[in-house]
Design a protein around this nucleic acid. Sequence first.
DNA 1: CAACATACGGAACGTTGGTTCCGGTTGTCA
DNA 2: TGACAACCGGAACCAACGTTCCGTATGTTG
Lengths: 205, 205
Amino acid sequence: MVGERAIETDGPESAPARAMRADAQKNRQRILDAAADVFAARGVSVPIDLVAERAGVGVGTLYRHFPTKEALFEAIVETKVDDLARAAEAAIDEPDPDPALFGFIRQLAREASSKQDLFDALDSAGIDVKSRCAASMERMEAAMAALLARAAAAGAVRDDIDANDVLGLVVGTCHGARRMGADDAATERLIGICCQGLRRADPAP
Amino acid sequence: MVGERAIETDGPESAPARAMRADAQKNRQRILDAAADVFAARGVSVPIDLVAERAGVGVGTLYRHFPTKEALFEAIVETKVDDLARAAEAAIDEPDPDPALFGFIRQLAREASSKQDLFDALDSAGIDVKSRCAASMERMEAAMAALLARAAAAGAVRDDIDANDVLGLVVGTCHGARRMGADDAATERLIGICCQGLRRADPAP
DNA sequence: CAACATACGGAACGTTGGTTCCGGTTGTCA
DNA sequence: TGACAACCGGAACCAACGTTCCGTATGTTG
């Protein structure tokens, strides 16, 4: 009997002795926001001083919150992927399997496109998003798998594909579109092509 | 009369006054090969010393051939894209429009996959492949456009797509597949989905 | 084979950028 | 409100990396 389950990975009862001071919390959030912006706009190789400046804090403050630049990456990634996972789970509640799946795919594409600069910047630097936040990532995959299974059962999509396929296809396509200088409309067109490819070759009976 | 033309900013007749010394030529090639390998394996941010070491030359030698790290990128990109352009042009000679297009798409995908690490590494660093070697890139786009036009005329593919769409789709999908840790088989499956998406929704009459 | 230009290697330089340190500031709690 | 701990800012430190420089080696030409 453990009494209190060891919540977090680092150390049992790692509940901080005390809550962060109010200004510290505010600064932490400011840094995260600023970092997301700056990394997206100028790549992850920007001097960290710029992030601090943008956040309106000194570098010292930044390092108090995130012991290293990498830790900052990690924190950002975690947030974003978690958002996506939540969205995927929400889609499962939709009654009709077909629009549930394809609606979410389009939403995922939009989201991925708008955050593309950030994701690109991150994995540019060798930050492996997938392994960095395995937990959120798995939630998203599970949700996507559920959406797929329902849609396949209803005869809406091929049954020889898995969640990973779809994720790779959508994310990759957004990346490719951007790389070719496509605008939002063109990107949406490409996603449409992907969706058509995902549907059953011969319509359900 | 200038007698000897002022070297060349690479204007017309850029034939160098003299051929490179034999060992210099060999070294130049070695550097290119080593750079492609190293950049692919460890990203473009590797110290340039590593490239030199791998090539078996000193940094000084490297800088003699490529005045800057960026110039080295450029040289590599140019080579690779040129290869692809040549392949695309070759595909035009195939008699049957359908296999000509889809065969090339698959070839492009294979090629893109095997060189993926390199391309990723390059555009990670903000090296815009497309603008860097506009010439080769345009040749490839033109060839792809030709393939598409023929295929569309034969009713094999949708007619609301252009060469850029296809390039973005294929390149992006390869990227996405790799990102999701897909193996070659999975990648090919994704490309298959793309191809299906590119075909006419309702088969030709 | 001699003489010269070309090419080579790698130590040294300057800059850039991540990280640390510490004197001053500010929230928080009694 | 006073005292203490947590927090802040930014100058300074240090390692990494691109680039330059120059003495030495080697292909080439006559």
